[in-house]
Amino acid sequence: MDGPPMDGFGRLADTFFNAEVAARYWPDILAGVWITIGLGIAVSIAGLAFGVALAILRAMQRPWLALPIIAFADIMRALPPLVIIIVFFFAFPLIGISMSAFMSTWLALTLVLAAYAEESVWGGILSLPRGQSEAARSTGLTWGQTMSAVVLPQAFRVALPPLTNRVIAVSKNVALGSVVALSEVLNNAQSATSTAGNPTPLTMAAAAYLAIFIPAMLFARRLETRMQWRV
């Protein structure tokens, strides 16, 4: 770079907040943002739905159903999500199951979120006094009606704070998809950084994460206070 010598702040600005580099690479970052948002939403929806379904199955109190669910939840919570992504992307093709980077990241994170969601919702179900479902059953509601109208609405309220935390934490892990060359924000930023020889794209990636997740957190907080209010 030509020009007059720069002080420390000038160098910092030139290295991490370089307008020229930013202008050149922002389309790449933006493309990554859409992947991250899309995958984050897809993981949240599928993971929550699957996790809630598992919690409901576990509530049926059949050991042959409950034991595999407990095993699944424990294994998925114990393994690093990175390992699961790598297994789906690199190991599964060897047994004839090939998945795109998007697919393997989505599937891995969905299973992880489902495991946590199952535990949270199950905890919520367990926290209810038995009298709640007994009262509902005594008025003729079926098991399923009792579940959907009485048990789950209350279990969700208990489970909501851990659920929202986990949804955000797992969605953030979309960045792990960079190991299987998924073109999400962080991966695109890293490639741009190497090409440009300047880390400004990483700064942009950080800004993109803040822009995505701070609104998500605010929304989660609003949801939590709204739900508490209605006791």
């Binding site: 006094p129 007994e134 009262a135 509902a136 009606q145 006791v231």
Partner: peptide, 23 residues
């Protein structure tokens, strides 16, 4: 029941009408 077991997430009317509506 001894412990009433009202549904805390529903109003009094919601409690009373739940089975009418669902069952």
């Amino acid at each position: 029941f001894q412990q009433f077991n009202l549904y805390p997430h529903l109003t009094a009317l919601g409690n009373v009408t739940l089975a009418l509506r669902k069952v």
